[in-house]
Design a protein around this nucleic acid. Structure first.
Lengths: 243, 243
DNA sequence: TCAAAAGTGTTTGGGTTACACCCATGA
DNA sequence: TCATGGGTGTAACCCAAACACTTTTGA
């Protein structure tokens, strides 16, 4: 029989799937690895969890090392633990999804020892990554798509002031569909999640759009509440059982 | 700097939250521990993951050791890794949720070395468990409540033949609400998930109810599809953005 | 004949959908 | 004045919700 001590020979890591929205496109922040294994490969930012550190704490640490950001959306998604997924031994990894505003990131980026460099990639441009990171990315992308239909987390990806069209483009990029402008606005505004700033775009070669920010207090309600922000892309009947 | 070898000193386990439905009540299968730490405490069935074993594989193994069942619903929920959660060292645990038919279990239960005995508990009767198992249980219960509104996993908990009232009671027990009989039936039947067996209850002191089984092929579609089985308990408007 | 649960339809209200034209600005 | 995106309303439909009485059986 295996004695318990035999089990204390494995390690675990956290990997962050950091999404951003820029240029009308959903992006992920990847690093080019500076060490073995998978030297020079692109992969998700992540690292071993220290002995005295919780999982989420470790994910925040990695995130801060990468971006300098501390106060961001971070959610545990899934744990990947196939045998053989890491050449150095038995390593399982806990995947976290985070959402940041690309602007903030650009101001504070710094590199660290693990990564030669970091870059944003459009999700459609990524095919192969170090370890099983592609699988992890795909899983997190699925979750993100579900998430934005349940909770208005999309706002985490936008700058503090944005237009309704930008918001709509964000949803369209994440869900990979087109949305009807009038219905989208009707719906969003009916949620009272937005604050009309009474400000307008400047220097645009067309009628300037109104700027909005979102109501953090009300946003918090939506985050904790179960809530249906059902941007259903489908014709499938989304039947609802009453009670 | 910590060298990688230093990280290979931790262990991980899987813990199963096994739900069943019996006697009109949602239950969880717990074990009374036969070894330290937490000797004699009640807790979730779980154990260390072997070096040559995947996570899900380990969860299935534990499940089979406990119940003799192999072909059951099993889903990874969340990983718990606070420092200090395990007295023997750094141990993180991956929580799995599984759904079984209590009848099947009753036929095949066997005990194992880790557990003195196993028993079903009504979820409302559980307050304290070994390790952080109460927190894990609560997390899985939340997930179950969400799951049954998204996918018709409730069927996993029922015997092969059941009545509409039993199905309704199951949903009521999981969601802790009351549902309208006519609306419930209308909705369920409109999904074409059920097969009318043209059989009836026998020896009941009232009008016997029709028996149904569920359509596994159609069920599979629903499982893979995103799908909304929105038994919304709330008055909250579940607004839906078109596309 | 009584108790206990099974079974069954209709109306109302609200949200989703589909859809087309005018407005404001900079070039 | 032209190109570009911003901004607006209405009608049809479908689904959720609310709600009460009759039927069948065993005791």
């Amino acid at each position: 029989m295996t004695v318990p001590a035999d089990f204390f020979k494995s390690a675990f890591t956290v990997d962050n799937v950091i999404f951003g929205f820029d240029d009308g496109d959903l992006k992920v922040l990847l690093i080019q690895r500076a060490e073995d294994p998978f030297l020079d490969y692109w992969g998700l930012p992540g690292y071993f969890v220290n002995a005295d550190e919780g999982l989420k704490e470790a994910a925040y640490r990695v995130l801060e090392e990468m971006t300098g950001l501390t106060d961001v959306y971070l959610e545990q998604i899934k744990t990947f633990g196939k045998t053989g997924r890491h050449p150095m031994g038995r390593v399982i990894t806990v995947a976290y999804l985070s959402l940041i505003k690309v602007d903030d990131y650009l101001l504070k980026v710094k590199n660290n020892a693990v990564a030669q460099k970091a870059e944003w990639f459009s999700i459609s441009d990524i095919d192969d990554l170090a370890f099983d990171h592609k699988e992890i990315l795909d899983t997190c992308l699925d979750t993100l798509r579900r998430r934005v239909q349940q909770k208005p987390v999309g706002f985490e990806l936008l700058p503090p002031k944005f237009t309704l069209t930008e918001l709509q483009h964000l949803y369209e990029a994440i869900l990979d569909t087109e949305l009807d402008k009038r219905n989208f606005r009707k719906k969003i505004l009916s949620m009272n999640l937005l604050i009309d700033l009474d400000q307008y775009q400047e220097n645009v070669a067309h009628r300037p759009a109104k700027l909005y920010s979102f109501d953090k207090a009300r946003y918090q309600e939506f985050l904790s509440d179960g809530y249906s922000f059902d941007l259903s892309e489908n014709k499938r009947k989304s039947r609802t059982l009453q009670y």
